[in-house]
Amino acid sequence: MSVAIIDYNSGNLHSAAKAMERAALDVGAEQVIVTNDPEIVRTADRVVLPGVGAFADCRAGLDAVPGMVEAMTEAVKERGRPFLGICVGLQLLAERGLEHGVTDGLGWIRGEVERIAPSDPELKIPHMGWNTLQTAREHPLLAGIPTGEGGLHAYFVHSYHLKPADGIDLVATTDYGSTITAMVARDNVAGTQFHPEKSQRLGLALLANFLKWHP
C-alpha cells in the first residue's frame, strides 16, 4: 500500500508526511512517499494534496508540475483511489477560488472558495487556532472522533473557505462568528480545512481513518 503526498512546492510537506507515517504505524505498514512524479501519483493507492498559501499560487504550483493534475484525476476519478486534500488542498477541489481574483479549481466539489465573514467585526482574520467540529453528516474519516463543543479540537489557519453548492458534500463545520466549512467529501474524495498533521489526537485519528478508508 502506498500513500503519495503531492509535492508541488507548497509549504510544509514534511509534517504532513511525518504525521501520515505516524498514523501508518498504527494501521499497518504503508509506504508514504512525498513526490512530484505524476507516475507515482497515478499508481498510488492513496493520494494526499496538502497546501498552504494563496489559492492562485497553489493552483499555479500544481499546474507547474507537468502531468500532475492529469495523474491525480486518473488516480481519483478512474481508479477510485481515496483522496485527501488539506487546507488549500481542500480548497483546490472547488470549481473556483476568489482569493486575489478568480482562479479555477479542480471542480471535484461544486462551489466556490470565498473569504470568511464573521458576523462580529471584532473577530480576527485569519481564523487561527484550535476549534471544535460540528458534523453535518457521518463520515468514515471522523469515525471514533469526538465532535461537538465538548469534542476534540482541530487546528485551523485560514482566511478563506469552500462553500459547497451541494449540501450533501458538507461533512463538518466549525463556528467562528459564522458557520465555516471544516470538512467536505464526495465519493472517494475528502478534504479538511484544518490541518490534521497539526491537530494532535484528532489529527492522527483522522489520518489513520483515511488509511483505513475504502470508499
Binding site: G11, V52, G53, A54, D57, P126, M128, V157, H158, S159
Partner: peptide, 14 residues
C-alpha cells in the same frame, strides 16, 4: 518590504 515578499511567497498565515 521583506514582510511582503515572504507573505507573497509562502502565504500570510505563516
Amino acid at each position: 518590504a521583506f514582510v511582503g515578499e515572504a507573505a507573497e511567497k509562502f502565504g500570510e498565515q505563516c
